[in-house]
């Protein structure tokens, strides 16, 4: 029982947050590499951005107890929103051109 309680303490402390952020980042990177679907790649990028924002927030809490890390995370959210809008517009355009979502078919610039 005490093992469970100490595990809960670990998970809800700094280290648990960092472990969650690390797994989010790696899962996002795997999605970026292994997905064929262009939207799947975008989902992976969003996961990685979220992991980075989470790390900024948690380190700003434990390291400085100041607001700055949260501001950076806020900017990450803004940039992710802009990136998602542009990426989806490009994906829709690509679909109109190729009638496919397969990112490996984007080879017009290849010789």
């Amino acid at each position: 029982m005490s093992g469970l309680a100490s595990g809960l303490d670990w998970l809800t402390g700094l280290h648990g947050y960092l472990a969650v952020a690390a797994s989010l980042f790696v899962l996002g990177a795997v999605a970026v590499i292994s997905r064929k679907n262009a939207i799947g790649v975008l989902l992976g990028v969003e996961l990685m951005l979220n992991a980075a924002g989470l790390n900024f927030v948690i380190f700003s809490k434990y390291r400085t107890a100041a607001i700055d890390g949260q501001i950076v995370a806020l900017f990450i959210i803004f940039i992710a929103a802009a990136e998602a809008a542009v990426a989806l517009a490009i994906i829709l355009r690509f679909y109109r051109l190729k009638h496919s979502m397969d990112a490996s078919e984007a080879n017009l610039l290849r010789d």
Binding site: I39, E46, I77, A84, A85, L88, I91
Partner: peptide, 17 residues
């Protein structure tokens, strides 16, 4: 922004394409 905006945008793109 994320749960309300980006997810809905992605769902729109999937449903459209």
């Amino acid at each position: 922004v994320y749960a309300g905006g980006v997810t809905i945008l992605v769902l729109f793109a999937i449903m459209l394409t």
